[in-house]
């Protein structure tokens, strides 16, 4: 009897997770597994054929371009976002201004997709309001210098959500820097620079790097924004996957699956690193 009880308890516990687990299994895990299966199993046999085709120049170029775009927007967005987070943290006087900027940052960090793309086309497109205004005043056509359907154009649009996302991610970490730390450091003889070098930087680099990794993954998986702006104009992995799935290019299930597997692999690596860094940061910042 006594032996049975813990078993019953455990079984009852698992019972409650069955609908949740089954739902995720059917609509998330099995699709992902069948994707990986399709990548590595061809005609009933294990095969690296599809994966090795990822190394062909045009596909490798897609990965490199996507990584490049993600890196650039993560780093620039990281710098801008840190500045914004610092300002949100240091702001004193009009409370409403800070709250206004914070609330819009929270929304902008989640924006993206088709509406954002059209807002930018309205501003910086060939007929865009900003482009026209600039052209009238200076004679300089911005849409020629930074065409939206280009690497630079996509980077500008991505920064629209990367900067506020970085700010939102960094705000708690900045807030957890205790005033007592800077005062203790000053009392021990440290200058402002010593304090930044010895305390602020070592404490903040794990959350900063973690946030940058998230920004990277965020840009890497963006599809709708890039598709609406550039279509096939920029050689990006998500767009290429989209073409394969919608049948715009020659149907090849195994290869589309390989592209997806490569994409998931990169994001899993990024997010795992982030989880490790976060664990480290949480130990210090409470």
């Amino acid at each position: 009897m006594n032996r049975l009880k813990p078993f019953q308890g455990a079984a009852a516990g698992w019972l409650g997770v069955v609908p949740y687990g089954a739902f995720l299994a059917i609509f998330l895990i099995v699709p992902v597994i069948s994707n990986i299966w399709t990548t590595f199993v061809s005609q009933g046999r294990f095969s690296l054929d599809a994966m090795s085709r990822l190394l062909k120049p045009q596909y490798l170029d897609a990965f490199l371009t996507t990584i490049n775009l993600s890196l650039v927007t993560a780093v620039l967005g990281g710098v801008g976002g840190l500045a914004l987070a610092w300002a949100l943290n240091a702001a004193e006087k009009p409370r409403w201004l800070r709250n206004f900027v914070l609330s819009y940052s929270a929304v902008a960090s989640q924006l993206g997709g088709v509406p954002l793309a059209f807002a930018f086309i309205a501003a910086l497109g060939v007929q865009g309001v900003v482009t026209r205004g600039f052209l009238d005043v200076t004679g300089w056509d911005l849409s020629q210098t930074f065409p939206l359907a280009s690497f630079a154009g996509l980077a500008i649009v991505y920064l629209y959500f990367q900067v506020p996302l970085m700010a939102i991610l960094m705000l708690p970490a900045l807030g957890s820097l205790k005033q007592h730390w800077s005062e203790a450091a000053a009392s021990l003889g440290a200058s402002r620079w010593h304090y930044v070098r010895d305390v602020v930087f070592p404490v903040l680099w794990p959350p900063i790097l973690g946030a940058l990794l998230l920004l990277f993954a965020n840009a890497f998986s963006a599809y709708a924004t890039a598709y609406a702006l550039a279509g096939g104009g920029v050689n990006l992995v998500p767009i290429m996957i989209g073409f394969f799935i919608s049948g715009n290019v020659m149907m090849d299930e195994g290869f589309a699956a390989a592209l997806v597997t490569g994409m998931i692999f990169i994001i899993v690596v990024t997010m795992t690193l982030r989880a490790l860094l976060e664990r480290r940061a949480n130990k210090w910042l409470r």
């Binding site: 998330l28 597994i33 998986s221 996957i241 989209g242 589309a256 699956a257 997806v260 998931i264 994001i267």
Partner: peptide
């Protein structure tokens, strides 16, 4: 870690 585009494919 599974972007929308990857979920569609799977």
């Amino acid at each position: 870690v599974v972007p929308a585009i990857a979920l569609v494919s799977g």
